[in-house]
Design a protein around this nucleic acid. Sequence first.
DNA 1: TAGCGGCCACAACGTTTCGTTGTGCGGCCC
DNA 2: GGGCCGCACAACGAAACGTTGTGGCCGCTA
Lengths: 302, 302
Amino acid sequence: MRSFVAVVDAGRFQDAADDLSITQQAVSKRIATLERTLGVRLFTRTARGARLTVDGQAFLPHARDLLRVEERALASVRPGRRPLRVDVIGRRLAPASVLGGFHRARPEVELDVVTLFDAGAAVEALASGSIDASFRAVDRSRLPGDIGAVRVFDEPVQLLTGPGHPLADATAVTPADLAGHLIWMPGIVAGTEWAAYYETLAAAFGLTIEVTGPGFGTDPLLDTLAGSPSLATFVGELTRLVWPSEQGLRRIAVHDPTPVYPHSLIWRRGNPHAALGDLREHLGAVKQGTGTWTPEWATEAA
Amino acid sequence: MRSFVAVVDAGRFQDAADDLSITQQAVSKRIATLERTLGVRLFTRTARGARLTVDGQAFLPHARDLLRVEERALASVRPGRRPLRVDVIGRRLAPASVLGGFHRARPEVELDVVTLFDAGAAVEALASGSIDASFRAVDRSRLPGDIGAVRVFDEPVQLLTGPGHPLADATAVTPADLAGHLIWMPGIVAGTEWAAYYETLAAAFGLTIEVTGPGFGTDPLLDTLAGSPSLATFVGELTRLVWPSEQGLRRIAVHDPTPVYPHSLIWRRGNPHAALGDLREHLGAVKQGTGTWTPEWATEAA
DNA sequence: TAGCGGCCACAACGTTTCGTTGTGCGGCCC
DNA sequence: GGGCCGCACAACGAAACGTTGTGGCCGCTA
């Protein structure tokens, strides 16, 4: 493939061979193999070099694309001057959306998105340099001194129920209203910062949160939820659900106070990656709302 | 690379090996080679399979991209059900722009753009099936019966001069005004349909068109034009010039009548490619303007 | 805690692929 | 028509690849 593009650019097999530091015969053999694989002739051989056939012309931009993508793939893991690598809590959750907004605003900034286990793993990864930034809810007082943090987004928590749930038709509920109901959150992983968030939330308002084993993915969770008259769960306002439309799930706002999930951007101080400043600048800091609730351990991350 | 994605999807080397119809050891060796090439570890090996590292997560979307691009590259030359392949007279000229408009309107239609020598080559390529459609100025009466043609775009011809040319400050000129001036069009290739167009144009209005040898590309042409007090050339209204801004070139409209270049879409009747109908539908037929001039041989292509 | 099973890595070997050298064939151009 | 330029074919050695066979590590279980 690289030989093909080299021949197109050079116009002659011999010149392409020089560019590739191999012999003309090797280039000839490579092109012949490629043509045999594709089943079409890519060049017309003339006495003055090689010219593209129609098939070759059609193939060329795709070949260039391939080399470009390969270059990007290599760059994504190249130590030093690689794309900005950002950890998000989940690809369908608010941080991913926020990062998408940054990408739309600054499309020239190369990004790679990864998902780590929890905030602790994110801090380790930041310290070791394997990622450049992370969106997590953190207890700022417990962060190492070389890790910076800015609370960038407070996401209201909503109640998610099926159509048969007693609260399904409410326009809004208060945390106190939920005291008698079962909040079902399978797939929650003990020890993670989001588990801690929901535990704190439950304790603060006397809620009952049930965690039945590891989750089997969100789809069966939502299916079960849609068919249950008693189960409800919490979900972030910006969480994108891929519900097959007719599941009839209801998102119900929570007020007085509104629990908000405190997403912070965290990074290692001294990380010289230029795009890191762009990201922080784009995000700014959240304006702390009134009438909201968030765990005390998170409020220090101003 | 394909093995890497297979392992990610399967979660275990052995399962990936089954998918690829090779042995587990071969997969292991491929991954090890890839990791050595990239200089990073892509998987953490556990007793229950292989999980992506952070680097692996960052690398994965690029790897998928690569496979996707490869698939498109293969499709571009696959006989039968390949992308719609359209010939344009030049990548910076009106037909390419029109095709770009179609692509924006129907981004789901896969397109490959090629450039053939002239209308004759395009007709041959249509007949042989190596292309699906072409934008050319054609003499409809001379087309084979199985080649369809619709005049889809009349492009006004403009005069292009440098700032020192006597007509540089004119807002518009008539063809008759040009009789005393030299029209310089290097790079015009005898025997092509666009050479025929300009020859007919010159003959119709008594113009002097000079063709000095093969062109050396458009950039030196425009440089020469910008610095000359006597040279002018014709250019299509939609031709995109990449002039380095400060060349000071002037585009001057031509009126009474306005010569228009009659772009037609031509295709082989009976070509079953579904996208061909989409393209024809998108283009429609040109509404013949008044006060314009075009060669008689082109007017039959109604 | 010892045994077992699942999973991946290492080693050795045969086959295939790749690149090289040497040579042949067919157009242009003078 | 001879010379030259440019690509293809042939033969050979080297490197890469995939296979079989085996070993080590981890987690689960009795």
